[in-house]
Amino acid sequence: MSGIALSRLAQERKAWRKDHPFGFVAVPTKNPDGTMNLMNWECAIPGKKGTPWEGGLFKLRMLFKDDYPSSPPKCKFEPPLFHPNVYPSGTVCLSILEEDKDWRPAITIKQILLGIQELLNEPNIQDPAQAEAYTIYCQNRVEYEKRVRAQAKKFAPS
């Protein structure tokens, strides 16, 4: 494992614990031996107030490669969400998460999670990743928002 990646992720964890947006979660997972795995984080993004996503808490896994922060983490909703920019596998399609697009090593975990929260309610229809959600979003916004509200209710924190 890269010392650069681990040191950056340790800084990220410290900064997150000191200050993070209300309702968001970002925690490194534990290895079988109980030690912390900084390369694999369990996160959760709350649906934004005043949107059909409100009330939901959407679980996301963030996986970092050894060359982080040169390369972005892979962000994957578990379980996958109904959304035009979420692949059926759950992987998020967002330009700041793509090395050859808008990724920059200075982007923080907090910025990534806030960017994904923004994307939930403002899909990028130029870059669809899920045919069904994309089609319904474009053709029947009322039905799309109904499905999103049902999903938010399903993923409401207990």
Rank of each mutant, 00 (worst) to 15 (best):
I125P: 07
G34Y: 04
F77V: 03
L81H: 00
E99R: 10
P72S: 10
A5V: 13
P105K: 00
L9K: 08
K154H: 09
Y87G: 03
F22Y: 08
D67G: 14
V148M: 02
Y137R: 03
L97Y: 05
M39V: 12
K76Q: 14
N124R: 03
P21Q: 00
K14L: 09
F22Q: 03
L38K: 00
T135E: 11
I107C: 14
W103T: 03
T135R: 12
L60T: 09
S70M: 10
R149K: 12
T29Y: 15
P88Y: 07
H83N: 00
P84E: 02
L94V: 15
F155N: 15
R141E: 03
P46W: 02
Q130D: 02
R61Y: 09
L9T: 03
T35N: 02
G55V: 07
G34I: 05
T35H: 06
W41A: 08
S89P: 11
P72I: 00
G50L: 10
Q11M: 13
E98Y: 15
P128C: 08
V25L: 10
A156V: 10
S2M: 04
G23L: 06
H83K: 05
S2I: 08
P80I: 07
P80K: 10
R13M: 01
G55E: 09
W103K: 01
I116R: 07
A150M: 09
L63G: 13
R147W: 08
P105S: 09
P32W: 12
I45W: 07
L114M: 13
P32C: 09
K65T: 14
S71E: 15
L60M: 12
C75W: 10
M36Q: 03
P79Q: 14
L119Q: 02
E145K: 11
D19H: 07
P28K: 06
V92L: 08
I112Y: 00
A5P: 08
L81R: 04
V92R: 02
E98L: 10
A131R: 08
A156T: 11
R149M: 09
G34A: 07
Q139E: 13
W41E: 08
R13W: 00
I109A: 12
K18C: 09
Y137L: 07
F77K: 02
E42W: 08
L57T: 07
Y68F: 10
K146V: 13
T135P: 05
E99S: 11
K154Y: 09
N140K: 07
A150G: 12
I96V: 13
A5F: 09
K14M: 05
I112T: 15
P32Q: 14
I136E: 12
Y137A: 01
H20L: 03
T35I: 01
S70Y: 12
E122Y: 11
A5N: 12
W103N: 00
N31P: 07
E122S: 12
A129V: 00
K65S: 13
A15W: 08
P73N: 02
K48F: 11
G115K: 00
T108K: 14
K18F: 06
D102M: 12
L60R: 05
E145T: 13
Q111D: 12
W53D: 04
K146N: 11
Q117P: 11
K110V: 09
F22N: 04
E145Q: 11
P128K: 00
P21T: 02
P52C: 10
G3E: 12
G34F: 04
F24W: 05
T91E: 14
R104M: 01
A44P: 00
K101R: 13
A10T: 11
I4S: 03
H20T: 03
N37Q: 14
A26L: 09
E143H: 10
N37I: 09
A106T: 10
I96F: 04
G23C: 00
A152H: 02
L113R: 07
E99H: 07
I107R: 06
E143W: 08
Q117K: 08
D66I: 10
V86G: 01
I4L: 08
C75F: 15
L60N: 03
I107L: 13
G115W: 00
L6H: 08
G115V: 00
Y134H: 05
W16Y: 06
S2Y: 12
P128A: 13
V25K: 09
N85S: 03
L113N: 05
Q111L: 13
P73V: 14
A131Y: 06
V86Q: 07
P84L: 15
P84Y: 02
P52N: 15
I116L: 15
N124P: 04
P72A: 13
T51Q: 14
K154V: 13
I112N: 13
F58W: 04
A131F: 03
P88I: 15
A106L: 01
P157H: 13
F22A: 05
L113D: 03
E132S: 11
Q11K: 11
G3S: 04
T51P: 02
N37C: 15
E98D: 15
E42P: 03
K48W: 01
S95P: 01
A150Y: 13
N124S: 05
E54T: 10
P72M: 00
T29R: 14
L57E: 12
P46Q: 04
K18Y: 06
C138W: 08
V148A: 10
E145R: 14
D19T: 15
Q126C: 11
N85L: 00
C43G: 11
F82V: 03
F24M: 10
E99Y: 14
D19A: 12
E145A: 12
E78S: 11
L63I: 12
W16C: 06
F58S: 04
P32T: 13
N37D: 13
Q11V: 13
A106F: 01
P88L: 13
P32H: 12
Y144F: 05
R147M: 12
D19Y: 03
G34N: 07
L57K: 09
T51C: 13
K65E: 15
T35M: 04
L113C: 11
Q11F: 07
P88W: 06
G23A: 07
K154R: 12
Y68V: 04
T29M: 11
I4A: 12
K18R: 13
Y134S: 11
Y87P: 00
P72V: 05
I125D: 05
D127K: 00
D67T: 10
D66V: 09
P46G: 07
E54L: 04
A26Q: 04
F24Y: 12
D33H: 00
C75A: 10
P72L: 01
L97M: 12
T91G: 15
S95T: 09
E118V: 10
P88D: 15
D127E: 11
E42H: 07
V142P: 13
Y87V: 07
N37Y: 13
V142M: 13
R8Q: 06
N121K: 10
V27Y: 10
